[in-house]
Amino acid sequence: MIEIKFKGRGGQGVVVASELLGRAFFIEGKFPQCFSLFGSERRGAPVIGFLRVDEKPILLKCQIYQPDQLILFDLSLVEEKEVIEELKPGGTLLINTDQGIEAFKNWRQFKIGLIDGRPIARGAGVEGALNTTLLGAYAALTHEVRKETLIEVVRRMIPIKTESNIKALQTAYDRVRIYESLS
């Protein structure tokens, strides 16, 4: 079983990101389970998305405390120490940031993917939500899911600006900077 946690703010597409990725795993024959936690449904409020995926049905009906993979939509929501304590040893971190790898020297025990999502999304014609952009980067970083499956899911689930979202996904897939774990 892989456990994935998404952290971001209301309006960034955190909930939809976990649902799209869940659906992609489902299409690929896996047993995903996804859910979200939000204090209040408003833009800017912290939102956490959870996704589990396994080869068999998942029985757990509780939150994820030690994910294998952490996707950070918004760095301002996390403390450096918190990530180290939370992410499983050997885990993978995908970060939406305009900074270089040198800014994350204390997280190098993890595999890291860096993506500057905002200009990519905007360049493709997507305003606000970063979900499709970060999922493109996720596919290239982890290879847990095929890019083509994600594109199929976007076509099916996102009726507005579909092609822009696919372009954002594709661009992020090509541009994500990947750094293997140093430990």
């Binding site: 649902e19 869940g22 489902f26 047993f31 995903p32 389970q33 996804c34 859910f35 979200s36 049905p57 998942i58 009906k61 509780c62």
Partner: peptide, 10 residues
């Protein structure tokens, strides 16, 4: 609520 109503599963 949430644990069944909002959990997406096959």
């Amino acid at each position: 609520a949430f644990f069944v109503s909002h959990f997406m599963e096959p």
